[in-house]
Computed example of a mutant assay.
Amino acid sequence: MYGTIYEFETLPTVGEQRPRSAPRPARQARRGRAVPLVGIIRNPRSHRNKGHAPEMEDCSNILTETPRTRTDLYRVLEGFAQRGIDYLVVDGGDGTVRDVLTCGADVFGNHWPAFIVLPKGKTNALAIDLGLPNHWSLAEALAAAHRGNTLVRSPLRVSSRDGSAGCIQGFIFGTGAFALATEAGQEAHRRGAFNSFAVGLTVLWGIIQTLFGRAGNPWRSSTPTRLIDRETGRDLPYDGRGNPNERFMAVATTFEKFPLGAKPFGRDVPAGMKLAVIDWPVRWVIALLPLILMFGIMGRFLDRSGAHRFATSAIDLDIEGPYILDGEAFPAGNYVLEEGPAITFVVP
C-alpha cells in the first residue's frame, strides 16, 4: 500500500499466502447487528489522504488498517472475512481498489461484503462510474448504505492462461498506446492535474503525438497482440493496414460512465465487459477520436479502417508488451481477460 504492492516482473499470485486447496476462512454469522461492522483499508499515501487522520477511527465498530505489503493486505482481508464485516471500505484511489480486489480474490471469492469507496486518489475513475462526489466522507457513505443505495459492478479479472499464477482484478485494462497514455497521465499528475482534467490532457497529448509523430515515434507503433474470443475460439477481426498480429491499442472495462462525460462505447452503454480496439494508427481515425470518445460516434466506415467495439465476456490475450490495469503496468504474456465477481457498491 506504501508505493506499489506489485512488482512488474511477476504476475501477482494471490495464492502465495494460503494454498488454494485450503478451505476459505469462515465468515462469522451476522447476528442482527444494530451497528454495522466496518473494515477499512486505508492508503495514507493516496493524494487526498496525505496529512489527514483516518475518519471515525475511535468508533468501536470501525476497523481501520493500513497494510504496507501484499502479504499484510491479504492477512488483513482474511481477518475481516473471519469477523464477518458488513462493509469493506477502500480509503484511497483506483490503484488501492485494484490491490484490495486482487488480494481479496482468494479470501472472498464470489461473495464479497458490500463495498464503499472513499475516492482519495488522483484520477478516481471508479468514483465517476459510481456517481460518487469528489469529497465523500465515511459518515455520508454509511448513511447512504443505511438507505440501501447501491449499484452492482463486476471488475475485470486477468489471469495467466496456464493457471500458473493467481489473478489481478481491476476496472480499466489497456495495451499499446494506452500504456503510453498512462505514463503521460502520471506526468500530468506531477504537474498538478488530477481527475477528469488529467484524463483530458492525456487524451489530447496522445492524439497530437499520434497525428504528427514521424516514423520511430512510439505513439505511431503497434504492439504484437492476439485477441481471441473464448466462446468462438476465433481471433477478433482485424481491418486496415498494418500487421494483423499487432494492435495499436486495446482498452477494456466494465464501467458504464466515464470521465468528462465521454461515451467511448456509444450512447447506450451495455452492461458487462466491453472492449475497444484500434488496429493501426490511421491518422484520420485518430483525428476523429475526440468525436468518437465524447459522442459515441461509430460506423462501418470506422470498422473498415480498424476501429472496433466488442461486447464479450472473455478473451484470450497474447501480448508481447506490458499491459495496464488501473494505472499499474504488468508484464507481457498469455492471459485470460474476463469479468470478475459481481460486487455491490454503496452509492449516494
Rank of each mutant, 00 (worst) to 15 (best):
M1T: 15
E7Q: 13
P19K: 12
R20K: 14
Q28S: 15
Q28T: 15
A29K: 13
R33C: 01
L37P: 04
V38P: 00
P44I: 09
S46L: 09
H47Q: 07
K50M: 14
H52Y: 13
M56D: 07
E57R: 09
E57L: 07
C59S: 14
E65Y: 14
T71C: 10
T71P: 05
D72S: 08
L73H: 05
L73F: 08
G79L: 11
G79I: 11
I85M: 03
I85F: 06
Y87H: 05
D94W: 09
G109I: 02
P113N: 08
P113A: 04
P113Y: 04
A114V: 12
A125T: 00
A145G: 02
R157N: 01
D162F: 07
G163R: 01
S164F: 01
C167M: 08
I168H: 04
I168L: 06
G170P: 06
I172F: 11
T182F: 02
A188G: 06
A188Y: 12
A188S: 09
R190Y: 09
F197Q: 13
G200P: 00
V203S: 03
L204P: 04
W205V: 13
F212T: 10
N217K: 15
W219A: 15
P224L: 11
T225L: 05
D229T: 10
T232R: 15
R234Y: 14
L236G: 02
P237K: 03
Y238R: 01
N243I: 11
E246K: 07
R247M: 09
F248H: 10
V251A: 07
F258E: 01
G261H: 04
P264C: 00
V269E: 04
P270G: 02
G272A: 06
A276I: 00
A276F: 00
D279L: 00
I286T: 12
I292W: 01
F295C: 12
A307Y: 03
H308I: 03
A314I: 13
D316E: 08
G321K: 13
G321I: 10
P322W: 02
Y323C: 09
E328R: 05
P331F: 04
Y335E: 04
Y335C: 06
V336C: 09
V336G: 05
L337I: 08
P341V: 02
P341D: 05
F345H: 06
V346S: 05
